[in-house]
Design a protein around this nucleic acid. Structure first.
Length: 587
RNA sequence: CGGGGUGUGGCGCAGCUUGGUAGCGCACUCGCUUUGGGAGCGAGGGGCCGCAGGUUCAAAUCCUGUCACCCCGACCA
């Protein structure tokens, strides 16, 4: 394949586009790979589409290699299956809904669980047909509230989604493991770093779910990892539970006047001023903060919930939400306080909380609040707090909840050391769906005893367009893009480093053609009247892994071969140059 | 949905405060020169100033409304 710069449909930009902030977005636009066509929608230009197709090809090859079979669904789908599964409404505003000319509802598919399930139901009815792994590489539509960062979050994007169908839980485990291995192989080939983090699996719980995150500060997913093996989505982090503390020697709880202390900060300051203790000053971690929220359940009922946590931590809204799903968390309003007179805002203490308390409000505490721990907390009277309130002696919560924020330095639950917080781009997600869709859509097969059993499923996604952005994000440098071999738009970029000398063009042209004949994809800068400087900067911006410069070296009978990433340069003789260049390229 | 910001040629921007019929750099076209690190000179083409109302003799500029886009947050396989 020979691409000539003189005719290639591309225009490189000298300046960064104003709306691009992150490197992949900036450089993909500047180098002429993509153009914005809509909010959350990008056009692939020839260079970009070549990269896209390379990524797609690698994903496809690894899916085929594991034994999955490719199918292809429409994106425009009827409402009915999604109505049956509940997702027509559950998916919320992110679902693109539309009507046809007869007023019939349709949607643009955000994922295809329903259709895959129905397809299998349509064709298969025996355990002998399973396991089955099928996948597609498809355009997906999601009406994202806020598309952002170029290709990172789109409203129309390409995803590889595959689905496994098994008769048993053990079979699902095996299908899941097979996908996990295929994903590892895929991302390794793409040259993308990743961490595999355990993820929350939503309302059903219990099922296994892991995300492949490419660690990068522009990513939208927060995760934690330890120096050891441990890595997890922030929502999925379990707090190590401390051992109970003996409290025989603990003084009895005592209520003190603490005027004007509605916040943790003011309380700690006052405690140190008036109630200083010998061994160490009071700190936020000595206090027990009680936060109220209102849960809205899917059936429309509302339930107040009190969360007790050490005063040096905030409630993490995402972690809390993940814990209470499918209910949603709403703020506790002034009206709610009025409706619960037992709650004294700013001075709420355990005595007023709990299902057996006067308020009847369910009271869940952070796992660190174990038996024997003693706390400085609200006394349920304005301007008063209680000291030395011992958990298990003076109050008993209704249970624990993982809602406190994770802090860098917290211990990993598996004992592998302190956690570090990081950001990542979600490039893959594997998920044991279980029987949710099979039950909703009635996918059953006969087992070996002739009995109907419900099939268990897994779903597995790779964001193809997002992977392009992630690769650009992780490989670029100051001068431009810097593609790994395998996804680059070409193998070799041949630069005729002059605007006029016909001999240079002749040699460059011949060399480019020889490389093409050898099976390589070559981008050849054959532009006349373009100064060498421009060609060099363009080559660096475009980021083909090997740049061959034909120019003044010709006088000595050599051309320069340069590695884009390391900038290492070698002169090779013109005679036999194609062969030696080809040989030097791995793969 | 909350907060912030921006809409002027393909791209990046100035002009707006203080109304007078649109400008700069890059890119593009033509000519001459130049040719190993975003060349020089000269001559050109291209913009109903996001849209709709209003004020005014006159609106890119002032007023009202509206739309779009970007960033932060909320939300989100």
């Amino acid at each position: 394949m020979l691409l000539r710069m003189s005719t290639l449909f591309v225009r490189t930009l000298r300046e960064d586009p104003a709306d691009a902030e992150i490197p992949s977005h900036r450089l993909l636009v500047r180098a002429g790979y993509i153009r914005r066509a809509a909010s959350g929608g990008y056009t692939w230009l020839p260079l970009g589409y070549r990269v896209f197709r390379n990524v797609e090809r690698i994903v496809r090859e690894e899916m085929d290699r594991m034994g999955a079979q490719e199918v292809h669904f429409p994106s425009l789908l009827p409402r009915e299956p999604y109505e049956t599964s509940g997702r027509w409404s559950d998916y919320g505003d992110n679902l693109f809904r539309l009507k046809d000319r007869r007023g019939v509802d349709h949607l643009l598919a955000p994922t295809h669980e329903e259709m895959f399930t129905l397809l299998v139901k349509d064709l298969y009815s025996s355990y002998k047909d399973l396991p089955l792994w099928i996948y597609q590489i498809q355009t997906k539509f999601r009406d994202e509230a806020r598309p952002r960062a170029g290709l990172l979050r789109l409203r129309e994007f390409v995803m590889k989604d595959s689905y496994s169908f098994d008769i048993s839980d053990a079979g699902l485990d095996a299908s899941y493991a097979a996908h996990r291995a295929a994903y590892i192989a895929t991302f390794d080939r793409l040259g993308l770093d990743y961490v595999i983090v355990s993820a929350m699996s939503g309302a059903m719980g219990g099922s296994r779910s892991e995300e492949f995150l490419h660690p990068n500060e522009v990513g939208e997913d927060s995760f934690v990892r330890s120096a050891g093996e441990y890595a997890a989505n922030v929502e999925a982090v379990r707090t190590p539970v401390p051992d109970p503390v003996p409290y025989d020697d603990a003084p009895p709880a005592h209520v003190e006047d603490t005027p004007e202390t509605p916040t943790i900060d003011t309380l700690v300051a006052l405690a140190n001023e008036r109630f200083s203790r010998g061994d160490r000053p009071w700190s936020a971690g000595d206090t027990l903060k009680n936060v109220l929220v209102m849960l809205a359940h899917p059936d429309g009922t509302r339930e107040p919930l009190a969360i007790g946590l050490p005063g040096d931590r905030e409630v993490d809204a995402k972690r809390l939400q993940a814990q209470v799903d499918p209910a949603t968390v709403q703020p506790f309003t002034e009206a709610d306080f009025t409706a619960n007179p037992a709650l004294v805002k700013g001075y709420i203490g355990p005595a007023a909380l709990g299902e057996k308390s006067p308020s009847g409000i369910r009271y869940l505490v952070d796992p660190r609040v174990v038996e024997g721990t003693r706390w400085l907390t609200g006394a349920n009277e304005t301007g008063r707090h209680v000291f030395d309130l011992v958990c298990g002696r003076d109050f008993t919560p209704d249970g624990t909840i993982e809602a406190a924020e994770i802090k860098s330095g917290d211990q990993a639950p598996d004992g592998s050391g302190p956690l570090e917080l990081a950001r990542g781009i979600e490039i893959g997600h594997i998920f044991q769906l279980g029987r949710k869709y099979a039950e909703a859509l009635d996918l059953q097969v006969l087992d070996e005893n002739g009995k109907l059993v419900t099939v268990t499923m897994g779903s597995y996604g790779i964001g193809v367009s997002r992977a392009v952005a992630a690769i650009a994000e992780s490989t670029h440098d100051q001068a431009g893009l810097c593609w790994p071999r395998g996804v680059a738009p070409a193998d070799i970029h041949v630069v005729a480093a002059t605007g006029k000398d016909p001999a240079v063009f002749e040699v460059a042209q011949r060399l480019a053609q020889e490389l093409v004949d050898g099976g390589l994809a070559v981008l050849y800068d054959d532009r006349r009247k373009i100064s060498p400087g421009v060609k060099f900067t363009d080559a660096e911006l475009i980021g083909v892994p090997t740049i061959v410069t034909v120019g003044r070296g010709l006088a000595q009978g050599v051309v320069e071969v340069r590695d884009r990433r390391s900038d290492q340069r070698t002169d090779v003789p013109v005679v036999g140059a194609a062969a030696s260049i080809h040989q030097a390229i791995p793969g």
